[in-house]
Amino acid sequence: MKKPSAAVSPYPQQSPADNYKLNQFDSTPPVDGETTTTAATGGRRWSFETAKASFSKVTTSPLSRASLDVPATQRYRLGSVLGIGTYGTVYLAVDISTGEGWACKVVSGSANKAFQMKEIELLRQIDHPSIVRYREHFTVGDKLHMITELVRGKDLGTAIRERGSYAEEDARIVTVQLLEALHYLSAKGIAHRDIKPANIMLVSNDEHTRIKIIDFGFGDQLTLTKRHFSRACGTPTHVAPEVIAPEGGKYNTTCDVWSAGVTLYKLLSGDDAFTADSMSTLVRLVRGGEVWFNDPVWELVSPEAQELVQSMLDSDPTKRVTPCAALSHRWLQGV
């Protein structure tokens, strides 16, 4: 199938080297002005499936008066391990006064704790229904504890593998939530910088369209004095071209729209938009930004859906659709 025509805009108005190495996708501690932490799962699946069934209640409520009457260090009972990451371990945490389940990431080591505090600075600013919610943090001995919303469902990548691909109606519902969250973050100058199915959780295993974005480990924020990002980071198959520009990119929050476009491509087809046998070839493909709809599966996908994918995957960030404009696309109307 040919690429969809771009002759009629569905929106309101608005040279590659091949020697990029995998280790240039930075996972080292941040330098001044950059945030490169790992979130509550350290990049691994954050799921309630391994937790005790008796603590299955998910909550986004603020601290209750009963909880506030107890010192934070005595407020929770830690249970089973939910995930082990590079910078810490995530446990099921039960609020003793209410019985509510939360996730608790425990981090030790001065460098790792400084790393985590930068993520906390971002999470404390965020209050959106499609983004995992921060509750509080505290220190016990030399260990930093971060309490966040507990998400029971599987990650979106697992859901796609189990289903093969998503029907358009379901993909639309997921995409609207994702774009609304990115619009919210962009308004705050925050870029997630690692949007991908593995960092998008389903709120429950009972349904497959309500999502929560997790893992702000590569997140960062623009300010009055910091007008662009420059650090190359993220997941190679989902990272935007400008993030890995050969001369060293300067980019903004629009990088997340690209990653959301790659995610939508996978939702609709079950396949990755960019695959290669080597990192240099993969980077060349990403920088080129050419997306193909040749697989027979795309014959079952509407031209409007393909059109939105293509506009989210414009390799020129100045021409790439914004989250707000994408939400106005005809394919997403009526959700």
Rank of each mutant, 00 (worst) to 15 (best):
K3L: 12
K3F: 04
P4Q: 10
S5N: 10
A6S: 15
V8P: 05
V8D: 13
P12D: 15
A17G: 06
N19T: 11
Y20N: 00
Y20I: 04
K21W: 10
L22P: 02
L22C: 02
F25H: 08
D26W: 00
D26T: 08
T28Q: 14
G33A: 10
T37C: 14
T38K: 08
G42Q: 08
G42T: 12
R44W: 03
R45G: 05
F48R: 06
K57P: 00
V58Q: 11
T59W: 02
A66N: 08
D69R: 15
D69P: 05
V70F: 05
A72W: 00
Q74C: 01
Q74Y: 01
Q74D: 15
G79R: 10
G83N: 03
T86C: 07
Y87W: 13
T89C: 09
V94N: 06
I96P: 12
S97K: 13
G101R: 13
C104H: 02
V107G: 01
S110N: 10
A111D: 10
K113E: 10
A114M: 11
Q125K: 05
Q125N: 04
I126K: 06
H128S: 06
I131P: 08
E136Q: 11
H137N: 15
V140C: 11
G141L: 03
G141H: 09
D142G: 07
D142R: 12
K143L: 00
L144Q: 13
M146G: 08
I147F: 03
I147G: 04
T148G: 12
L150H: 05
L150E: 06
V151M: 07
V151I: 12
R152S: 11
G157W: 09
T158I: 14
I160D: 15
R161N: 14
E162Y: 04
R163W: 02
E168M: 00
E168P: 09
E168G: 01
R172W: 09
T175I: 00
L178V: 07
L179N: 13
L179G: 13
A181G: 02
S186T: 13
H192P: 09
R193N: 04
D194Q: 08
A198G: 14
A198E: 15
I200G: 05
L202H: 01
S204N: 09
S204A: 06
E207F: 02
H208A: 15
I213E: 08
G219I: 01
L222G: 08
L224P: 07
F229M: 00
R231Y: 00
G234Y: 00
G234F: 02
G234D: 02
A240E: 01
P241F: 00
P241A: 07
V243I: 09
V243W: 05
E247A: 07
E247T: 12
K250Q: 11
Y251M: 07
N252A: 10
N252W: 00
T254K: 04
C255Q: 02
V257E: 07
V257I: 12
S259P: 04
S259A: 11
A260W: 12
S269E: 08
D271K: 15
A273N: 09
T275W: 03
D277Q: 15
S278F: 02
S278H: 11
M279R: 06
L282N: 10
V283T: 13
V283K: 02
G288F: 00
G289A: 04
E290Q: 14
F293Q: 10
P296S: 01
V297L: 06
V301D: 03
V301H: 09
P303S: 11
A305N: 12
P317C: 02
V321L: 07
T322R: 14
L327Q: 09
H329I: 03
R330D: 10
W331E: 04
L332M: 05
Q333E: 06
